[in-house]
Amino acid sequence: MVDNVIPKSLDEALEHLAKGDYQIINGGTDLMVKNRAWSETRLDFKKNMLYVRSLEALDYIKRENNVLRIGATTSLESLLYHEHVPSVMKECLHLFASPAIRNMATLSGNIGNASPAGDGLLITYLLDGVIVLVNAEGVRKVRINDYVKGPGTTDRRSDEMIKEIQLHDDAFDYTVFNKVGGRASDSISKTSFAGAVRHEKGIIKDIRIAIGAVAATVIKDKSVEHMLRGQSIHQLKEKIPQILEAYEPHIQPIDDQRSNRSYRKKVAMNLLEAFLRQIASKE
């Protein structure tokens, strides 16, 4: 029999994590599905389970200037309707899943799963997220691209849990979020795209591009983003073929029961190009 622990406080949760190997379960919308079994029988959980969803101390949304701080047990639904949450993230949350799933699921859970198709993960990349991990000793911060190691694997140590996600917003002029799922809602992304740009007087001040479900992790190429900062929109327009070429080798999707490699790749490139052309049209 597995041990089931419902900690009453963060400290209690961390005590357990310090003592033994626990599977942290938050909203459960992924783990309860993955471990489902014949109805009315025990789920296929193999490890001791730590249920953190009810830790109210981690249910918060705060904003300090351009940094959005999201507690680990905050539901996606709370985020969707919160004034501090930027519109590009709301667009994502709206299409992420149905209301019931949004009420159960959390951003930290989505990040913890580290599925390359995770829509929350995509937004966390887009907004240069920092993951705040905590254990009995203290906290450490890890940038999202260092945190996610590959599909389902992360930098989290077994005695740690996610306490908070910090997202770095900007006064974007134009943002886009595209989820390409099997249907209009309630689906797993075949590919996803998020882009954001801030420009002043025809000069790009900030640009972010994240592409999901087309590689082992979300694609976000900081070097291209850096290269584009400070350039004029006109220069960007001329560089579109080069930019596409820069992303192309990163896009290495798979075939599965939901879609195929060539579709995912083509669509990801189309969405990237459409985003760039939209920016270019603002010249």
């Binding site: 419902i6 379960i25 909203g27 309860m32 599905v33 489902r36 389970m49 969803r53 009810s54 159960m104």
Partner: peptide, 17 residues
């Protein structure tokens, strides 16, 4: 008061609710 799917809701999540 919030809609959830009970087939993937662990009993743990209703504690105190």
């Amino acid at each position: 008061g919030k809609i959830v799917q009970s087939c993937i809701l662990p009993l743990a999540s209703v504690d105190g609710k």
